[in-house]
Amino acid sequence: MTRVDLKVVLLGSEYVGKTSLMDRYVNDRFRGNTPYQNTIGAAFAAKPVEAKGKRFVIGIWDTAGSERYEAMSRIYYRGAKAAIVCYDINNSTSWDRAKFWISELRRFEEECKIYLCATKLDTTSDSSNVRAIKYEKAIKYADGIMAKYVETSSKTGENVDTLFNMIAEDYISNPENMKQVEETICLTAKDKRSSCCIGGS
């Protein structure tokens, strides 16, 4: 049983690439069209991280993006320190949904830090494909809600680590969180395990 210090929730519509993002970060790989048979599921992952000289465990919760389950998403937010709200860079509907998630978050989990995350950045390198959401628009919105904005590609791994490292550093920068981590570090000081586990595997 892994002790998790930092709970991060992944929010976003279906097929925006939440699971791929997590898989890229935790296992440093991209599933694409060829599924890996060795993992049975990727809904939860815990990974030890180090930020500002402190070691702690980051637990990532994938959520169901389908709208029919959005009423329950509040249960997922509970106790989350950070939420990554994803949208498909080519899909304006997912952008609208992302805005909805953010408003929900602001309402129910005020302490939760929000990270607006554009996925599938690699698809924009192809000039024929025009991105639906412009960078300026996104960053403006993010600034407006006091959120950070990152554009990622799970396929290439671009900015994925940056995103999670940012989350870790922001978390530890908060003196309250720092205190908590230090307390738990006392608990786990001798415990230098570097294992990570993916839900179900």
């Binding site: 699971t19 599924p35 049975i40 169901a64 179900g200």
Partner: peptide, 24 residues
């Protein structure tokens, strides 16, 4: 129970399941 669900989803989906498939 949930691990078994992931297993059966893997059988059904043909690959690792995500939360989108898991919750239903």
């Amino acid at each position: 129970c949930c691990r078994n669900i992931f297993l059966l989803l893997q059988q059904s989906v043909g690959g690792p399941a995500s939360a989108d498939e898991f919750l239903p």
